[in-house]
Amino acid sequence: MSDIFKGIEPLIYESKINVPYSWWAGDTASKFFINLRDEKKIIAPRCGSCGKVFLPPRKVCPACFTENTEWVSVSDEGTLVSYSVARRKLASIPADKKLPVVWGLVKLDGADTAILHFLDDVDPGDVKIGMRVKAVFAEQRTGGIRDISHFKPVR
């Protein structure tokens, strides 16, 4: 297999491209984040046609293709839809998270779609699909999804 590399001195050009972005959350997501930051409340838009409640919030229902104008309150408790335990430190895992990182999809009571977040205060071996979990809010909230620190089991 290595025959093709025989006699080759591979020269490599190392580079790092700096590509900064500023992503606008938009009105719909901002409304959610402002409620989360200021009131520790979880709200979500509801489709006027099919009644589906979207979390993450969506401006337009992808099935009905109509604008969602009504907002409803969603519980800070919900059910674990699926999960995994990441056992390798990757650059995409936030620096403050310690391995193993439990990563779950949580359908909050009152919502029809699941939200991605971390599970903590739990032994990875005790995590089960269908278990009940509750949001733990961050002490310092800045208007982002990590204003929820993580989800923990309901005991």
Binding site: A86, L90, S92, I93, V101, W103, I145, R146
Partner: peptide, 14 residues
């Protein structure tokens, strides 16, 4: 998604 999924992501394998 940069606002929702990337902030709480644990890699493609997860």
């Amino acid at each position: 998604d940069p606002i929702w999924d990337r902030q709480v992501f644990a890699g493609a394998i997860s």
